[in-house]
Nucleic acid binder design. Structure first.
Lengths: 341, 341
DNA sequence: TGTTCTTCTGGCAAGGCTTTCATCTAAATT
DNA sequence: AATTTAGATGAAAGCCTTGCCAGAAGAACA
């Protein structure tokens, strides 16, 4: 093991060298008005000379704040990580966190239970001042516990039956409805729906929107055209194969995620079905993947970056500011029409 | 602002309630052998009853370790973030960090300079015990400073002219060489190279490998077939357009990244060139994108997940263990042949 | 039986670094 | 001479860990 070039310069060292007390140095750092310009300058030059940097840990201890926020990914790391949604939302989060000089702590768990535990531990041990939940799922255990314990958090997503928490989201029901309505308008009636993991609220919301699109037009929701899958290419591929295998009749597919839609396209193409001509496909999230495939994927563009940004804004206003509680924000999404539908 | 349900239970509270001293409680937490089983049990039940969780900050202060490591992304956040490389490497990092109970702190900067500063600050302020650098670039300012100051770090990548630091990497030169050799073997001679941002060492390494493949066969490196671009679809698209516009003659393209390769494919297809038949395309990194495009992309599979895992192993052995210094590891990559070449 | 030595348990207090309230001194003002 | 003020200080607080010490009980010994 190597030795750290001991930069263990403390406030005391600076104080001693400058011939003042530690409290004076502290006030110089804070640019306190009661310190004379002379002293300030002197102390600052000593700080520079000695290479002094205030110890964030000690600071946190006395200030009772860690100046960091946790990112609780989504309880199915492996899966969601492959999704370009994740990098995009982190970018948004980063940008605002940086402005507030907040550190970002990532959760590292792989299962729902582990992640719930990790999140609570992060908060209880005061490692983070609050957390951003990147998704909610059915029978979410974590959200009520966070609420009960009064830990600051904000959800990117929707939580069944509670307006009592901070959240930012797009209106998945309405957005899905809009996408399906577009297909109906184009004359499609047998629209299949490739649903995501039903444990996620986002999946069921989009499925709901799919249904509502039919009902709003006075149409019946077609039978047997919903297939569950995971949020992955494999998932969409398998689900579409199942549809095809049981000779379901459909002229369009609405997938709750781009990855799923791409899997569907692959399955279709393998069976010689022309996507866009024989069968229309619509995805969700409008990730970079959609523009990579042939034909380019029609998809619902969700302002992912902004979701991340606003999540941090809400969270910081709760933790450090005096924002009202709770705060909600619903961001608009829009259908991006390309060649697949 | 909401009030945190004050779980401000400290070690003192537990001690008082249990009728012992704080030191005893501390030793119970550490499962110190000097504490009798009876006392341990009693203290533990009180801890559970009061909902006590040790304050990580205080602990860090006394232990002089933050139990967290920083992830310095790569100095061009925006760009690299879009790349599926990033989620994959984070997953690998997470998995090992979790085992060691380390927190992961993400850098949030957007420029090289900002990121260098942020990284140093993270370390100097003792927020993290060490850092993982996700890429190196030419004239890297950060690496020598980290070395000088003796801060523990590990580089995922290569740093020009220094075996003095910890790193884990794939052999980009050899791997690129192998990929291009495959094209040469197939009879291609006019192989174009779409290089990435030349500021990254990884780009120039792969370009080097491209050259070496020719030389190893006693062939001349073709003139005027190298185009610089960014690590993005747009970059590859533009670079290929430039090649086409100046009527460069080539029968194959070697791209230093899948994103770039996909951009190339798009440009080719738009001009009616059949990828895989008229022009072969080979990518790098074998990300999920490669299997999404038509035709499926032949690409160099880099063990990204493992790179992340090993990076953490090396780093922790440096920080907390007594590993030798420095440590290197070169991981093997392999060409995955699909339909584009 | 009385004395000394061990062995167990657990307490005391210092240390880690910064911030801030209450003070204090010396100079300035009234 | 009395009061205010600028400038700086001391000490406590924030929470936990750990080296060292002490008391008690049991063991060994004379």
């Amino acid at each position: 093991m190597r030795s750290v070039a001991n930069e263990n310069v403390t406030i005391k060292d600076v104080a001693k060298r400058a011939g003042v007390s530690p409290s004076t140095v502290s006030r110089v750092i804070a640019d306190h008005p009661r310190i004379s310009p002379d002293t300030k300058e002197k102390v600052r030059s000593i700080m520079a000379e000695l290479g002094y940097y205030p110890n964030a840990i000690a600071r946190s201890l006395v200030n009772q704040t860690s100046n960091s926020i946790g990112l609780i990914r989504s309880r199915l790391t492996e899966e969601n990580f492959a999704n370009p949604f994740f990098p995009a939302v982190i970018q948004g989060i980063s940008s605002v966190a940086h402005k507030h000089r907040l550190s970002l702590v990532l959760s590292t768990s792989k299962t729902f239970e582990q992640e719930d535990e990790e999140c609570l531990t992060l908060l209880r041990q005061r490692r983070v001042d609050g957390v951003i939940l990147l998704a909610s799922h059915r029978d979410d255990q974590l959200i009520p516990r966070l609420s009960q314990d009064g830990f600051p958090f904000v959800l990117i997503g929707r939580y069944e039956g509670s307006e009592e928490i901070n959240w930012v989201n797009n209106d998945n029901i309405a957005d899905a409805k809009q996408a399906v309505a577009y297909l109906l308008e184009k004359g499609h009636r047998q629209v299949a729906c490739l649903d995501g993991d039903p444990r996620y609220v986002v999946s069921s919301d989009r499925l709901l929107g799919y249904r509502e699109a039919f009902l709003a037009r006075g149409l019946q929701v077609p039978e047997g055209l919903v297939e569950n899958s995971e949020f992955s290419v494999q998932g969409g591929y398998g689900a579409t194969q199942r549809l095809l295998d049981r000779r379901a009749s459909f002229s369009a597919i609405f997938a709750v995620d781009d990855l799923v839609a791409i899997g569907a396209m692959r399955a279709l193409q393998e069976r010689g079905v022309k996507v866009g001509r024989d069968v229309a496909v619509v995805g969700f999230n409008d990730t970079i993947l959609g523009s990579c495939v042939q034909p380019a994927l029609t998809s619902v563009n969700v302002p992912i970056y902004e979701l991340g940004q606003i999540a941090v804004q809400i969270l910081t206003s709760q933790i450090y500011g005096s924002g009202v509680y709770p705060q909600h924000e619903m961001l608009p999404a829009s259908l991006v029409i390309r060649d697949s539908a």
